[in-house]
Amino acid sequence: EADPRLIESLSQMLSMGFSDEGGWLTRLLQTKNYDIGAALDTIQY
């Protein structure tokens, strides 16, 4: 079963217009401990 923190973070990022095609966003959020800010910083640079 998916981590509730992942579901919450992923749904927030999907609502911002990101896609999780191929699961890349799920993996990114997992490596950033479900921190949306850290994930966005990684995507920006």
Results as ranks from 00 to 15, higher is better:
S9C: 13
G22K: 05
L28N: 00
N33T: 05
Q12M: 12
E21S: 09
D20H: 00
D20Y: 01
I36M: 08
D3W: 05
A2S: 12
E21W: 07
K32I: 10
Q12P: 01
E21T: 11
E21R: 08
P4G: 10
E21M: 08
S19L: 11
P4A: 12
A2P: 13
S15E: 14
Q12I: 15
Q30W: 06
D41I: 13
M13G: 02
L10P: 00
G17L: 04
D35H: 06
S19M: 09
D41Q: 14
D3P: 07
M16T: 03
M16S: 04
I43G: 01
L14C: 08
Y45S: 15
T42A: 15
A2N: 13
P4H: 12
Q30T: 12
D41V: 12
L14H: 09
G17C: 04
L29K: 00
S11D: 10
A39I: 07
T42G: 07
G37T: 14
L10H: 02
P4I: 12
D35I: 05
L6G: 03
T31Q: 15
L10V: 07
G17F: 02
L28R: 00
L6T: 03
I36K: 03
E21Y: 08
D35R: 02
K32L: 15
E21K: 10
L25W: 00
G23N: 07
S15F: 06
G22P: 01
G37D: 14
S15A: 14
E21A: 10
L28S: 01
R5E: 08
S11R: 14
T26W: 03
D41Y: 10
M16L: 11
L6K: 04
L28M: 05
L14M: 11
I43Y: 04
A38M: 09
N33V: 07
S9M: 07
L25C: 05
G22C: 14
T26R: 06
N33Y: 07
F18R: 00
T26C: 04
G23E: 05
Y34K: 03
P4V: 10
L25I: 07
R27V: 08
L40M: 09
R27L: 10
Y45C: 15
D41L: 15
I36A: 04
G23H: 08
L28C: 06
R5S: 06
S19T: 14
L40P: 00
A39H: 01
A38N: 06
Y45I: 15
Q30Y: 08
P4R: 11
G22Y: 09
L28P: 01
N33I: 06
E1S: 13
L40V: 06
M13Q: 01
Y34S: 04
G17Y: 02
Q12T: 13
L14W: 05
M13R: 00
G17R: 00
S11W: 09
L6Y: 08
A2H: 12
K32W: 08
G17W: 03
Q30D: 05
S9Q: 04
L28G: 00
G23T: 03
W24G: 03
I43C: 09
I36H: 03
T26I: 06
E1K: 14
G22H: 08
Y45Q: 15
D3R: 06
F18K: 00
E8K: 14
F18H: 05
Q30L: 11
Y34F: 11
Q30G: 07
S15G: 14
A2D: 14
T26N: 03
R5I: 06
G37H: 13
L10N: 00
Q44Y: 15
R27H: 10
D3H: 09
I36D: 01
L6M: 08
I43M: 07
F18E: 02
A2Y: 12
Q12L: 14
W24K: 05
P4N: 11
Q12F: 13
E1A: 14
R5D: 06
D20S: 02
A38K: 11
M16G: 03
L25A: 02
W24H: 05
L40R: 04
L40N: 02
S11H: 12
T42N: 08
Y45A: 15
G22M: 08
Q44F: 15
I7R: 13
I43H: 03
G37A: 14
E21C: 14
G23R: 04
R5M: 08
S9I: 07
D20I: 02
G22V: 03
I36F: 05
I7G: 09
G22D: 12
L14S: 08
K32H: 14
E21P: 05
T31H: 14
A39R: 00
S19P: 04
I7S: 11
R27W: 06
I43N: 03
E1G: 13
G23W: 04
L10R: 07
A39D: 00
W24F: 07
Y34P: 01
K32P: 02
S11F: 12
G23A: 05
Q44V: 09
S9D: 01
L25D: 00
I43V: 05
G23C: 07
G23P: 01
L6H: 06
G37E: 14
Y45T: 15
F18Q: 01
D3E: 08
T31C: 15
I7T: 13
W24N: 05
W24S: 04
G23M: 07
I7N: 11
D3V: 06
M16R: 07
I36E: 02
G37V: 14
D35Y: 03
N33Q: 10
D20K: 01
Q12S: 10
A39G: 02
L29R: 00
E1F: 12
I7Q: 14
I43L: 12
W24Q: 06
Q44K: 14
I43F: 06
G37L: 14
I7P: 07
Y34H: 04
Y45F: 14
A39L: 05
T26Q: 06
W24P: 00
Q12C: 13
Q30I: 15
L28I: 07
E1L: 12
L10G: 01
D3F: 06
N33R: 07
M13C: 04
L29C: 01
L28T: 02
G17H: 02
G22N: 12
G22I: 03
Q44E: 13
W24D: 04
E8L: 11
E21Q: 10
M13N: 00
L10Q: 01
L40G: 01
G37S: 12
S11Y: 10
G17N: 03
W24M: 05
G37P: 11
G17I: 03
L25P: 00
M16V: 04
D41M: 12
I7D: 09
T31F: 11
D41R: 14
K32N: 10
G17T: 02
G17K: 00
E21H: 11
I43D: 03
D35W: 04
E8F: 10
L29V: 03
T31K: 13
S9L: 07
G23I: 01
T42Y: 15
M13F: 07
R5K: 10
T31W: 11
T42R: 05
I36Y: 04
A2C: 13
S15P: 03
Q44P: 05
S15I: 12
T42I: 11
S19A: 10
M13T: 01
L40W: 07
L14Y: 08
S15Q: 12
L14Q: 09
E21G: 06
D41P: 02
G22L: 07
Q44T: 08
L14T: 09
L25E: 00
S15M: 13
S15Y: 06
A38D: 08
N33L: 08
Q12W: 09
T42S: 13
E1Y: 13
P4L: 10
E21V: 12
A39K: 01
S11V: 10
L6W: 06
D3Q: 06
D35P: 02
P4S: 11
S11P: 03
E21L: 09
N33S: 08
S9P: 09
R27C: 12
Q44C: 12
L10E: 00
S15D: 13
E8P: 08
I7Y: 10
G23D: 04
T26G: 07
L6R: 04
Y34M: 06
T42E: 15
S9E: 02
P4T: 12
M13L: 09
Q44D: 14
R5V: 06
Q44M: 14
G17P: 01
E21N: 12
E1I: 14
Q12Y: 11
T26E: 04
D41C: 15
D41H: 13
T31L: 13
D35S: 08
M16Q: 05
L25Q: 00
L40T: 04
D35N: 10
R5N: 08
L6A: 08
A39E: 01
R27T: 08
A38C: 08
G37K: 15
A38L: 11
I43S: 02
Y34T: 02
E1V: 13
Q44S: 08
L40K: 04
G37I: 14
F18L: 07
G37N: 15
D20P: 02
R27I: 10
S15L: 11
S15H: 11
D41K: 14
T42V: 13
A39V: 14
L28Y: 02
T42D: 15
E8D: 11
G23S: 05
G37W: 13
L29F: 01
S11L: 13
S19K: 12
L14D: 04
P4E: 11
P4K: 12
F18M: 05
S19Q: 11
T31M: 14
D20L: 01
P4M: 10
L40H: 03
E1N: 13
L25K: 00
Y34G: 05
D3I: 06
A39Q: 01
D20F: 02
S19I: 11
D35F: 04
A2I: 13
T42F: 15
G17S: 03
S9V: 09
L29Q: 01
Q12H: 11
A39M: 04
F18T: 00
A2M: 14
L10A: 01
S19R: 09
N33C: 09
F18I: 04
M16N: 04
E8T: 11
I7F: 11
